[in-house]
Design a protein around this nucleic acid. Structure first.
Lengths: 268, 268
DNA sequence: GATAGATCACGGTGTCCAGTGTTAAAAGCT
DNA sequence: AGCTTTTAACACTGGACACCGTGATCTATC
């Protein structure tokens, strides 16, 4: 009983809820979903097509099943909406490290994106990134010099990767680089996807100082590919939602740990 | 007497007309413009701020004057609207040279952009470009692999330039590259701006075959910086609006000339 | 300081488009 | 074939946003 006749959700929210429902139950029919969310069958089909395109579910005649992959690296717009407060808190703290005149490097994470939004106030600044979303954002900021990192375009992350990208990074030297990974455990930062790893490593190598950004959910997770030791980062920033024991352990393993307090919810 | 009480123009059109007016007269007051275009003073000021941001005019107290630069390299959205039919004709002809499976390189010109719009139908394909507008467009095309060329972001062209860009180009090899320049005269292709030149040259060097795209207005114009000999291009495509004698002369100077007939105006 | 010019802040208005439903046609299954 | 599920096509709608004007406020120039 997820939805007891509550207010209509936007399509994005509804698709999340549908995915959740499918992930939990394993499978379901389109008709059930239509009933559950009080929308037409057509709308459900459209949602399912979208979720299938994202690789989260499989449609078959008569219903839909969860994609049997254990990997769950969701797409940009989804990641963008989750942990928003935590990301903002981390971004705010990260912004304190940036001073006018610096060249900062940002990776293709939504946490970095949150940081990018705060950079206009710190102009003049040079921003280097391989994240198309950030590129489009920063391109509109007066006073900020933008250097884009090219490479093979990756739909899922909306960013540029591959050899061209790492080569381009190697030819630069930034004052400060901000990187986020999908998991942080046992003194190492991990990432779910292999092809992202060399890019993040190249960024670390081409920056004078580097900072790891990780919301607290990353601390209890694990992922397949090792990116770097935590000691490789000059600083690690997490939000205050983490368990005390996790923070304590982390503090032992990092050169400098920063716990960002959650900000009061903004009043638009 | 530009506007005799005709229908209200959209802001873009009006700003063009204002620029034209200023370019012709040298200077004018905000009040006169408000009267001329039948809009409020505030709107005129907003238009003038925009034109000033684009570097076309200079505002001073009591009026506005033309920017004394002879250069008139207008911005993307302006270029996009001019010579539309010609660009489409050229793009259509250029698309005939592209075959599925190829890797094609596109420069930061609106003519190339028109070509990019036609590429989805020719998938699978690899597209390489430094033009942010094209990047955003192609990123949404399934079946097309996109390789972005990074570099220093240039607001005016909405593209990436500089050493990082030429380096990235040099590391690649495309089957076919499409380039456009601001002027074509006396056996050479010229461009108005210095920092664009190395990028176009790098593209020529990194492509097996190269094509120059030029609408007929380029043939009677000239620009400061020499990009390359016309002989350096395997093919030159112009639209049918060119003067016969100009075409004849051009034919002598190019390896292979292609005159694209204007398409019938599309019926949306 | 007086005045004309420029900007700011707010609210109104029209347009555009994402999102949705309906109906009809197509495609699978039994 | 007969049914169900899925897709295609079209029209509607509500909200977002661009655009513009009005009046108040700020600023330069005399």
């Amino acid at each position: 009983m997820i939805d007891g006749g509550g207010p209509r959700l936007g399509p994005a929210r509804r698709q999340e809820a549908i995915a959740e429902q499918i992930l939990a139950r394993g499978d379901i029919t389109a008709g059930e979903l239509a009933e559950l969310f009080q929308v037409s069958l057509m709308t459900i089909h459209r949602d399912l097509n979208e979720l299938e395109r994202q690789g989260l579910v499989r449609k078959l005649r008569g219903g839909v099943t969860a994609q049997p992959s254990s990997v769950f690296e969701s797409n940009v717009s989804f990641r963008e909406r989750s942990m928003r407060a935590e990301k903002e808190a981390i971004a705010a703290r990260a912004a304190e490290l940036v001073e006018p005149g610096m060249a900062v490097m940002l990776d293709d994470s939504t946490t970095s994106l949150a940081l990018a939004r705060r950079l206009e106030a710190l102009a003049p600044l040079t921003v280097v990134t391989n994240f198309l979303t950030t590129i489009e954002l920063v391109a509109g900021m007066p006073g900020i010099r933008l250097i884009a990192l090219g490479g093979d375009y990756d739909v899922l992350h909306n960013s540029f990767l591959g050899v061209s990208c790492t080569d381009a990074i190697a030819a630069l030297q930034a004052d400060l680089c901000f990187v986020s990974t999908s998991a942080v455990t046992g003194g190492y930062a991990y990432h779910q996807e292999q092809h992202i790893v060399p890019v993040k490593r190249a960024m670390l190598a081409s920056a004078t100082r580097s900072v790891l950004l990780a919301d607290h959910t990353k601390l209890t997770r694990t992922a397949l590919y090792r990116v770097a030791r935590l000691q490789a980062f000059d600083r690690v920033i997490v939000d205050a939602g983490a368990a005390p024991e996790a923070l304590q352990e982390l503090d032992q393993l990092t050169r400098s740990l920063d716990v960002a307090a959650l900000l009061p919810p903004e009043a638009p």
